[in-house]
Computed example of a mutant assay.
Amino acid sequence: MLLDNHGRPINYLRLAVTDRCNLRCFYCMPEHGLDWLSRAELMSYEEMLRTCRVMMGMGINKIRITGGEPFVRKDIMKLMTAISNLQGLNELTLTTNGVLTAPYVADLKKIGVRSVNLSLDTLDAARFFAITLRDEFASVMHTMQELLKHGIEVKINTVVMAGKNTQDIIPLVNLTKELPVSVRFIEEMPFNGDGHAYSGMTWDYVKIFEEIRSVFPDIQKTPDPTYSTSYNYNMPGHKGSIGIIAAYSRTFCGTCNRIRITPQGTLKTCLYDDGVLNIKDLMRSGADDTVLQGGLLKAMSNREKDGWMAELKSMQKPGKRESMASIGG
């Protein structure tokens, strides 16, 4: 088992395959997009597969494919299929905005993907366009229907934003009445690539819960799974459930079991750090697997205690904030 310097087991890798996205959600990146990475700057699929294999030999057994939007990158299913065949993998999951995903749902089921996180911040088509600057609401809803039809668990990720979609909280909870989906309401985070002024803690996890309880007073707390980032609840008679993720409040750091790799191969041991090791550069310098393992172990032995400490250390360095698209969700 891979442990960090605080004794926390690390078994979950979030692998971002691209920084590019076909939506322009204002909380994730500037309206004009980003300075996209060139092909040479991205990790190749071969490098990603090697990284996964090495990490799985060290205790990683769950991998989530993220972006950007994973399906923007060509032949993403080839990579996912190869990863699904690696020995020791217990779970392969995916986070997607659903715009391009529907045609691949049957293939996802075939390679063993049992759960997909679907980014959806509103159930109103007009507000969807206002948030994303793209007219793709119908495509996302079609993907959700396809996922449910194929028996893949759907977790809807909703970023709660003051003045943008707080009126969607209750309709999204209502969605769980007839559909077996889990809607997770997420505190907004300061990772928009300096595209807009961060709204801060206007809607924290406590306020989100109180908004839901005002309409659903019989809301019931359910047990939170080990390493859960969400506080989980259900409403009597509903087929689905809800969760609230204190992403900015960072109440779950003490049990964090995940690490991230950005599209350019930077290892992040915390969402809020600025990167602690470039795996791609190590590989391209000729490092063998033993050297890679040594670099990973050193990074794990210097992991910050929580997101507040990681952010403080990161803020001491010059440069603008990262975009969530370049971090990997």
Rank of each mutant, 00 (worst) to 15 (best):
I169Q: 07
E304W: 11
K62R: 15
K74L: 07
I261T: 03
A82L: 11
L120M: 10
G243T: 01
S115L: 13
V215S: 13
D75I: 06
Q145S: 11
L49I: 07
L2C: 09
V173T: 06
R53N: 05
Q316N: 14
L175P: 01
D75C: 13
Q293M: 13
A130V: 08
D75W: 14
W308C: 00
A287Q: 14
E304H: 15
T51N: 06
N257H: 11
D75E: 15
T66P: 13
I60P: 01
S84Q: 11
P180W: 15
F209H: 14
L123K: 10
F129K: 14
D19S: 05
P9C: 07
V54G: 02
I65M: 03
I170E: 09
M324C: 12
N90P: 04
L79Y: 02
V276D: 06
L118K: 03
T176Y: 01
K298D: 14
D124N: 15
N157W: 05
A246E: 07
H196A: 12
V183N: 02
V206D: 09
C21S: 07
I186V: 12
L34Y: 02
M55E: 09
Q264I: 01
Q316Y: 06
L94T: 00
V105S: 13
D168E: 14
I279R: 02
R127E: 07
K305P: 04
P30Q: 15
T96G: 03
I65F: 01
D306Y: 09
R250N: 13
V17P: 05
P263Q: 13
E91A: 03
S228N: 08
F71V: 00
Y227K: 10
A299E: 04
S230Q: 06
L172V: 00
V140K: 12
I219P: 04
S241K: 15
R250G: 05
L312K: 15
P9Q: 08
G98P: 04
S84F: 01
G57W: 01
S323F: 12
S214E: 05
I327V: 03
I170D: 11
R8W: 10
T222C: 12
M55K: 11
E304M: 15
S249G: 08
R20D: 08
Q316G: 11
D124E: 08
K164T: 14
I186Y: 07
L92N: 02
G286V: 13
P9V: 06
F185P: 09
D218L: 12
L15F: 00
A82F: 04
A138H: 14
G200N: 06
D124F: 04
K155I: 05
F185S: 01
Q167W: 04
L277P: 00
M315W: 08
H6K: 12
N85S: 07
S214M: 06
G286F: 05
